[in-house]
Amino acid sequence: MTTLAVSPITARKHRRLSDQGFITVMVAVVAVLLFLLASVLVPNFFQLQNMINLVTNNWAVISLGVGVTFLLVSGNFDLSVGGNVALAGVLSVWLAQSTGGANTLSTGLGFPLPLALAGAMAGALAIGALNAFFVVRLGVPSIIVTLGTMMVARGLAQVITHGSQRNTNLPDGFGTLGNLTLFGTVKLPVVLMGMLLLVAVFIERRMLIGRVTYWVGANPVAATLSGIDRGRHVTRLYLFSAAIAGMVGILLASEFKSGFSNRGMLMEFDALVIALLGGVAIAGGFGSVIGMFFGAIILAVVTSAATGLVLSPDWQFILKAVAVFLAITAQTWALARRNR
């Protein structure tokens, strides 16, 4: 929110909240209201553990949402993150598996663990670079490009795992990262997600590259004519998003001690959904990481309440559809009324 940028130089009375702040607050209020509503309707919903689970169960998607949000603000899609999660996870396993296993799927390249993880990150970043190349250099619409790289990344994962998974012959330390708990009960990935959110909010609100993202998304032509190197910036954002996906992939592979080619399925979709629920506009130039976070809470409350009401898990697709539809119409309506 812009209020973070207040400096003591001038006293500002009657300062109007920006549209951005307004929407973020609206999303947060909706999240809280939904939570209260669910607490009333759903038995055993209002419990501390349940509240914590709303966030911790969704660490992967929320982390991916950060990169996706930055890209959406800059006016670009990234649908490759789910596939990239699978690729990075599978790569980390394959590279770390020792050589000379009983069959193909238990034989890896036998890299030392740090090197294996670095290799997995490199693979994820390569997908990000591919996105940037097609979007920035060739000017192909990002939706088409990232649908393609989504399949390329998942396809590579499937090739490496022969369409299934690799989970044997791993070095001892492989499962550490994903299962480490800090402060008693909190898993390392959740802590990393928290740190990522803080860093992302700092980048968005306080750093130059954060502001450049908004300029690029709000008016690409004006940004170029103001001396901003748009291509370089969008490239950076795709690499950033890919790096997050790589990290998530490695952590998930470590948590389950396996590289599974179907991991992260539909995560790109969920990351997009929580960003849209959080008020990020696909036209670019509008949205925030905090909004995306509350969007994730909304989705988590809705889906877990639905489970609590003994609805079949198949309901999640319909709930997501309805939630996104309502979020988009509500946002359009609210901003139109406010700025009338």
Partner: peptide
């Protein structure tokens, strides 16, 4: 093997999009 299909379709999609564009 069958598990190469996703990769091939994805690569074909990128290739088709790029050629089309050029």
């Amino acid at each position: 093997p069958a598990y190469t299909q996703t990769l091939v379709i994805g690569a074909a999609l990128l290739l088709a999009a790029a050629t089309n564009h050029l």
